[in-house]
Amino acid sequence: MNSFVQGDPLLCIGCRTCMIACVVAHEGKRIFEIDPDGYDFHPKLKVVKTWLVSVPVQCKHCENPACQAVCQVGAISRIDGAVIVDQTKCIGCKSCVDACPFGAVRMAPLGFETNPDGSRRAVANKCDLCTGLDGGPACKRVCPTNALRLVERENIDEILTYKRAESLKTAAATISPSITV
């Protein structure tokens, strides 16, 4: 089963440190060596703020990914428990952006190639769980409130066990208020 990074809106303070960490993780030391405008600032997650929540939205690494299904050139695949875009293969058709129900895929001009008019070619950009980078998901590591966690198979079991126990409490209370579970 694929893992994914999940944010807790009760802990998130909307500081966007995770977005910066994502770029730093993928750009590495290069950021400090090149011209400030010569690198790409395209975080693979986006902090969303509404009336009720502030929390980053990023790829859920679906088991049957809609983005993968619609990609005509096979640029999206499941590799080692993560859904990964091969940006060199991407033709920029935006079908995955359209297909993803979470808004987790964005087009970004990553500068692999230039278009005939000189502009940079845009490709699909989304969370890759920091696959291949040291230390695992960078966003999770930097969050000042520990609002992010990597959910793996075992965690899902834990969450389910907890939820079942909680729901029993409510069930018991409806039958007889005196029962404590």
């Binding site: 303070i13 966007r16 910066i20 770029v23 950021i31 400030p36 600032f41």
Partner: peptide, 20 residues
């Protein structure tokens, strides 16, 4: 706003914060 500190004499010269 989070990210930029005060008049941003410092944070405005931090490339990542400026990107944000």
């Amino acid at each position: 706003e989070v990210g930029h500190y005060s008049v941003r004499t410092m944070s405005g010269n931090c490339r990542l914060l400026r990107n944000l």
